[in-house]
Design a binder for these strands. Sequence first.
DNA 1: CGTTAATGGTGGCATATGCCACTAAATGAA
DNA 2: TTCATTTAGTGGCATATGCCACCATTAACG
Lengths: 150, 150
Amino acid sequence: MSKDTLPGLTLCNNAMLRRAARKLGQFYDDVMAPSGLKATQQGLLYQIHIGNEPAMGAIAASLIMDLSALGHTLKPLIRDGYVETFADPDDRRIKRVRLTPRGLVKLDEAMKLWSVAQQRFEDVVGKDQAAKLRAALDDIAALDFDLPAS
Amino acid sequence: MSKDTLPGLTLCNNAMLRRAARKLGQFYDDVMAPSGLKATQQGLLYQIHIGNEPAMGAIAASLIMDLSALGHTLKPLIRDGYVETFADPDDRRIKRVRLTPRGLVKLDEAMKLWSVAQQRFEDVVGKDQAAKLRAALDDIAALDFDLPAS
DNA sequence: CGTTAATGGTGGCATATGCCACTAAATGAA
DNA sequence: TTCATTTAGTGGCATATGCCACCATTAACG
């Protein structure tokens, strides 16, 4: 097979997913820029907000994110005073996370912008299509790739 | 609306996309680990391979990636001797990229592992479903979110 | 021509993510 | 109780990505 006829990267599920994520990330980030938050940060603040002073491990699990990666991502938010952490009194290994009042205000501000981006996205691709896409992505997130231990 | 009844992050198209990308990335990376390449690097080598000594800008455009981000990502691959760059003789602003022989060998090795991951993914989600997903992701990558300039 | 504008990349800085080695704390077994 | 094991996070290091300011080159225009 000549190099010229090799299929493009369009065949790789992972590459396509990353590519779409870059594209959509740029769009959401653009819209949210006035808040000073990236879309990832808004998502993280929101996740913390809807949790009940969630433990770091719990957040990482919901987001399917490495625990240490979460720790890193949290740092700028703590530095900027949007988030604070405290040890769980019943198990001092566990560190819980909550929004500060300042963080709550910032989240409100960011959510307004998020709505704009979200709305615009759904206008462009269609509400149904968007819902289907999210469902498909949710399925992927739930997949188990382990070979069944026979 | 009480905090307890707020919808999860499942509603955000962008967050879901990133989450699925983390999940799938971890899987592909795991499978490709023996090659010493990350899935992103394999994808980049492949993109360079199928291009005709592509210019950096061309690669960045196909991957919907920031040009400077591409430059950064390329560095470890150049350092490890998989890739080399050279100025286009007709326009010295343009820097073209190609695989070294070593890079070609490494790509072959990585592609074998990639096939394993790709195959496993399609076994789990179904070949049709995977194709539909890639099509949907390709559509997203092609979207234009600009408001029509009236 | 020569000045101006547009194009293609680089480097610095910042966030996003992951892996690994290591520490502290809680659990379980002897 | 005491020691091995498991659990929850941290810090260091590396890649992934983006934005912005800046440089070199080329194209455009008067």
